[in-house]
Amino acid sequence: MTSEVSFFRSLAIQGRVMQALLMREVITRYGRDNLGVLWLIGEPMVFTLGVMALWTFAGMHHGSQLPIAAFAITGYSSVLMWRNSVGRCVSALQSNFNLLYHRNVQVIDVFITRTLLEMAGATMSFIVLSIAFTAAELMTWPVDPLQVIFGWLMLAWFGLALALIIGAATAYSEIVERLWGPTTYFMFPLAGAAFMVDWLPKQAQDVVLFLPMVHGLEIIREGYFGNVVRTHYDLGYMATCCLVMTLVGLFLVRDAGERVEQQ
């Protein structure tokens, strides 16, 4: 649409726009009062702590040897990370409509910014909680921190791709927005937060392993607990799923950009 702009100039503009959106998003969401931006970390932390307390009292860990704190933190933080990222993108187009009047602000910038912010918060919360609970001797350091980080990044990739797809899809029909709520609700028990694949019967294992995020979580837990747990995952399968989802997401986002109509 515009005249040719070099790749690096485009990259610079993209960076500038995303920085502007990021600052704006932080102030709008968290304001300058009380804890302000710390809520970015505080919000997921409160969630994780609550779930952890619930699981402890409910005896959710199936009599396994795993420390409940580490099990809940690895499980719940990571699900929270990709699920909230998608959730933030569901209403993103509507509430950022008018920003598209600034030509350099594109639909994809809005999605990526929201996803990044959400993931940064969840990641920080994960790190802070891990350090706090390790210091309190409720859990130990991960056996292989690099593998935990790798699994976390894989889940982040999955979250970003899904956020692009769902976020863009809301531009087509608001039904997507209505269905996303129930979908996350039903997906939650399947996403792996509350179980290890190995605990399930064989048939159930085959079913949950269709879900790419289950593989990511197994990678994280193997990294965290080491050989104490038996894990089931297929990195190739998860990467393929993420790649396909990313391509679909990018395509939809571009098409959604063409469809956006102001009032």
């Binding site: 649409m1 704006r24 102030i27 956006v260 102001q262």
Partner: peptide, 30 residues
Amino acid sequence: GAERPTSGVIRRDMSVSWPLAFGGAFQTHL
């Protein structure tokens, strides 16, 4: 550039403002 044309091309070889004094682009919480 806030919306795309259904068909046709718009070329801009100079910088073009957003619609002047357009108030809708405000984030009212800010």
